[in-house]
Design a binder for these strands. Structure first.
Lengths: 114, 114
DNA sequence: CTGTATCCTCCAAGATACTG
DNA sequence: CAGTATCTTGGAGGATACAG
């Protein structure tokens, strides 16, 4: 998931910052904990993940719930607003899938490899 | 159009760089010249506009045609690929229109004015 | 008119180390 | 475990001046 080799970052469509969209996808099927999120988002640093999560929270896209206990435990979950973003994201993905080749060909022809 | 007072830049959905999407909208109804583009895109500097146009060209979204003559004249036009981006852009706009209030409320509640 | 060439500032993003 | 604190770097974006 989100393999850096699969350069999904080449789409001209972006949601919020670099991770915003991916985090929403990660929460699509239920709440996740801080460190659970770091697995699919390979290589994201704690600082950056925290900042993205705060941004999503500020925008009303996710909720943050801290469970007390001997070991810390924080869960992030999508709000209805955050879930509603899945729709335009699907449109973006549909476009990307359909025009992926065209886009790559154009870039390659322009001398920009990768 | 693209009035800086209407803060359309607050949507969490972006196409390419800051101007990429707006340029595509400007070309929606026919080719435009370099300086024609600078009118709706208030305040964009020549350098930045050039960079965005080059990026769109590199991605196969627009074409650049220079007409020879005593006065220079360059026209930019959408390719089919560029035109195809209008579809996910419409989806993004539909989302923004529908959830605009929700988004603003969330940000305001988070203490982030504007 | 359609750009280049410089210079400057800001911030996203990453690396690393540390904390309750 | 879930972060915060620092530091660094790259590139976006803008201002201004100049060129073919």
């Amino acid at each position: 998931m989100f393999d850096p080799v699969c350069p999904s970052g080449l789409t001209p469509i972006r949601f919020g910052d670099k991770w915003y969209g991916m985090i929403i996808r990660c929460l699509e099927h239920g709440p996740r904990r801080f460190s659970e999120l770091r697995v699919p988002l390979r290589g994201i640093s704690a600082k950056v993940l925290t900042r993205s999560l705060r941004a999503l929270e500020r925008d009303g896209m996710i909720t943050r719930t801290a469970y007390p206990g001997p070991v810390q435990r924080v869960e992030y979950d999508l709000t209805p607003l955050g879930r509603s973003l899945l729709e335009p994201m699907a449109a973006a993905c549909a476009w990307a899938e359909k025009h992926w080749e065209e886009l790559l060909d154009a870039r390659e022809a322009a001398g920009h490899p990768r």
